[in-house]
């Protein structure tokens, strides 16, 4: 039997959730005041994921950095592996919103895409 403690992110209440687990299986969730807390807790303890947003270096653009995000959630424990790839990447202007900048970042199967347009400057 294992206990995990979480803060619910569903609303400003921020209920303090206690999740009882056994061999990776959720036994019970307590401390929540609504259904959203239960759903959040079960996901967060079994498969926590995050969208990562950052910037990537651009060459030949009107800005030196283009903002980017993972096209979908990636596992929470891969955040820094994703950032490592992002920090070493360089792309060429022009860039459009949605342009794939890194396919399959850090072996997650998720691509990193641009979230703004960068014009090319001569």
């Amino acid at each position: 039997m294992e206990q995990r403690f979480l803060t619910c992110i569903g609303c400003p209440m921020g209920c303090q959730l206690t999740v009882e687990m056994d061999k990776g299986e959720v036994i019970s969730v307590s401390g929540n005041t609504c259904k959203r807390g239960d759903i959040y807790a079960r996901k967060e303890v079994t498969n926590p994921t995050r969208i990562v947003t950052s910037t990537i270096a651009v060459k030949g653009g009107d800005k030196a950095r283009v903002s980017c995000k993972t096209a979908s959630d990636i596992p929470k424990d891969k955040i820094f592996a994703v950032m490592k790839d992002i920090n070493h990447a360089v792309c060429e202007a022009p860039v459009k919103i949605g342009t794939v900048l890194i396919p399959d970042v850090a072996g997650t199967g998720v691509s990193v895409i641009a979230t703004r347009n960068i014009a090319k400057v001569s």
Binding site: T55, A57, A64, N87
Partner: peptide, 12 residues
């Protein structure tokens, strides 16, 4: 100095 360094580990 106001900013310390460039972000990112790339040569610019």
């Amino acid at each position: 100095n106001i900013v310390l360094e460039r972000s990112k580990e790339v040569t610019e």
